[in-house]
Design a protein around this nucleic acid. Sequence first.
DNA 1: TCTTGATTGTACTGATTGGTACAATATATA
DNA 2: TATATATTGTACCAATCAGTACAATCAAGA
Lengths: 189, 189
Amino acid sequence: MPKVFAERSDVIPALGEIFREYGFAGASLSEITERTGLGKGSLYHFFPNGKNEMAEAVLNEIDTWFNENVFAPLRESEDAVSSIRLMFNEVNRYFKSGKRICLVGAFALDHTRDHFSEKVCNYFKIWMNSLTTALKRNGLAKKDAKEIAEEVVGGIQGALVLARSQDDPKIFVRAMKRLEKRIMELIGE
Amino acid sequence: MPKVFAERSDVIPALGEIFREYGFAGASLSEITERTGLGKGSLYHFFPNGKNEMAEAVLNEIDTWFNENVFAPLRESEDAVSSIRLMFNEVNRYFKSGKRICLVGAFALDHTRDHFSEKVCNYFKIWMNSLTTALKRNGLAKKDAKEIAEEVVGGIQGALVLARSQDDPKIFVRAMKRLEKRIMELIGE
DNA sequence: TCTTGATTGTACTGATTGGTACAATATATA
DNA sequence: TATATATTGTACCAATCAGTACAATCAAGA
């Protein structure tokens, strides 16, 4: 029997990539054991509830990452403009300039959503609310801020779909530039 | 043994809804037999290549529908403005005002795309090209027209993801209004 | 060293997967 | 009516599915 002990947190990124690639239903345990290098024994030791618990762990990690690196700055930074610029930079980095899709968006589309509806719903809701807060801090009316936030978050998701459909990440990069420019014009920067 | 004979084309819409709901990997044959009311015998009689051929038939129907109702008018109508208005109307109708997702977009995200890459790629490509043509006919420079087309088609996809994530079709309706308005402003209507 | 608990591989389960075979039935044509 | 073809239900298949059981192994503390 093997030597090195893994940590639960070590596997989560790999699980994320597998779910991105195959979707929740399409990600089989055999694929998971193969790609993570962990046998079923370890897998069910770390995630007693199986695939569901694995997906939940991945969603939690995504949640934490975005809260720390994107949402919190949007809500709390005194310099709203630079927190918005930060958002575009970090989001671009996270999605690897369009080479990576949004797992939450993918889960949202089919009935996987129903298993994780709260997390899926909140991810986008908090993103939009945080961006709205930053925009209001820059003098936009609440209604306008909400509409722009919806447009930007939606635009990012759509660009990820489009980029992947054409196998052309530049579509995503272009969309990000366009959206950032529009926001900056609106808040007069 | 039963009486009424079905037609291949009768099942395709039902297949479409099943794939929308469960994704390609998640749509099991037992679910398909149940929801279509057809046994495996009939199913494999109409689609000898199984699930793959079913999905292809669905994609073909989508392709035909959009070509007839959206893409061809955009490319061929003499009145480009009304062909763009028609696009928004028909697209809104097709996606049931945000209550229905885009199957092609869903297929694009995970590795299902690889099985149908040409169809997935062309659906969006032809959509964007057709819209670009209509915009150029209205005096927009080629580069601008292409960029707006990318923004609009992407924006629609993103709005579908967002609307479904929040279980709120109005998000889609708002996005459609916003995008139509922006296009109309750009071409001076 | 001895013990304890965390980690792991292997073997196994019953259920479900996509798919095939084929006989029975229905419709259409002659 | 007789025949040919299209359609269908059922039984079946091997492969794979998610998940369980458990003994073997490890690291660390007493």
